[in-house]
Design a protein around this nucleic acid. Structure first.
Length: 354
DNA sequence: TAGGCGTGGAG
DNA sequence: TCTCCAAGCCT
């Protein structure tokens, strides 16, 4: 079957009309403030809309403009970010604010060249900021755009990297609306997030159904084509819960660790088995642990599936605290975190950490 | 270029 | 329970 190319004008018109009628009411769509839009874009990197909303509101309430963010202390910014993940984004956000105050007199620049120099801003975010905050006709490509375009244009192969990815950008450049670039970009993403879903795409609700060759051929779930399956390794870890008078001992991970460098965790170790890991811990900390498993927590970190089992241990002999350890106050542990932001513990732990 | 970086939603 | 992957960036 011929790969018919949808008419760009028609595509824009249908999509924008649908967007006007069905777009979600999101807090960052109620402002034109480049700062607020910038914050939202940083938070939205690899993070779902629903997750971001409460963080976004709290962040803007506490740090409403470039100036307040630029002079904020890092502990406070990380605290506001706690639980969102990818903590480098929080530091980049601060660095961005400082740069904008220092180099641009407190105004987000409006050229691609300058925007790309801002820490934490790559091709996607630059396009989003220029189109949404400044109505400039730059496209965006994210996971949604890849999925929508792969179906609309029957794009084959891996579209996340290399030539395939470049192809998606070329389509995005061709299709961007010059009248309403910000709305067009958001509309494609909105369609991907609410209608053109990875599984069970809602084609009957799609404003582009009549333009979509994948849907016409019943191939919508065959696009985008699956990337090569990633090999994941299974890792066994043991962790110690060492409590004393309402407090628990936590440890800062070293910079030599494979993951979560510099983050706080309950003392843990890897091993060939849980027992093996537990013995290492006992040896390292010079403590004796019980063999009764308190809890098993599972974690996914790039290409690793981790099972972390917690065991109770009696506190080490009181004396000077070892370097990199500290006691945190806990009243009740409902969930045990694996590790957390640099110098911080995850919120359900800090809730109890007066 | 591929791997590291966090957490949680959803099927 | 398991898997996939989300408004990506950096090295």
């Amino acid at each position: 079957m011929a790969n018919t190319i949808p008419n760009p004008t028609l595509l824009q018109k249908n999509l924008l009309k649908w967007f006007d009628q069905y777009k979600r009411d999101l807090p960052w769509r109620r402002t034109r403030d480049p700062y607020a839009i910038f914050v939202s874009e940083m938070m939205l990197q690899q993070t779902q809309v629903k997750t971001v909303i409460p963080y976004y509101k709290r962040f803007l309430q506490r740090l409403p403009d470039w100036k307040s963010l630029a002079k904020a202390n890092e502990e406070m910014v990380l605290k506001l970010w706690e639980g969102l993940g990818y903590y480098r984004r929080a530091r980049n956000l601060m660095a961005a604010a400082q740069k904008i105050i220092r180099d641009y007199d407190g105004e987000l620049p409006d050229t691609m060249e300058k925007i790309l120099e801002i820490p934490g801003i790559g091709p996607y975010s630059a396009g989003a900021l220029l189109s949404i905050a400044y109505q400039k006709p730059y496209p965006v490509v994210d996971g949604n755009v890849i999925r929508v375009f792969s179906r609309l244009f029957l794009l084959k192969g891996n579209l996340k990297t290399g030539k395939g990815h470049k192809k998606v950008w070329e389509w995005a450049h061709k299709l961007i609306s010059h009248q309403r670039p910000g709305d067009f970009n958001q509309a494609v993403m909105e369609l991907g997030a609410t209608v053109c879903l990875p599984e069970n795409p809602q084609c009957l609700l799609c404003p582009l159904l009549h333009l979509c060759p994948a849907a016409r051929q019943g191939l919508q779930t065959h696009f985008p084509q699956a990337a090569k399956p990633s090999v994941t390794a299974e890792v066994s870890m043991a962790a110690l819960f060492i409590g004393r008078s309402g407090k628990a001992l936590v440890k800062k991970r070293s910079q030599d660790e494979k993951w979560l460098k510099g983050m706080w965790e309950f003392p843990s170790a890897e091993g060939k088995s849980f027992e093996d890991a537990l013995r290492k811990l006992e040896l390292d900390l010079k403590v004796k642990a019980g063999r009764e498993e308190l809890l098993e927590v599972r974690h996914q970190i790039t290409h690793h599936k981790i099972r972390l089992r917690f065991f109770r241990a009696t506190p080490p002999h009181p004396g000077p605290l070892l370097d990199g350890f500290k006691w945190v106050k806990l009243s009740g542990l409902r969930r045990l975190p694996f590790a957390s932001a640099q110098g911080k513990l995850r919120k359900w732990l800090l809730d109890n950490d007066a």
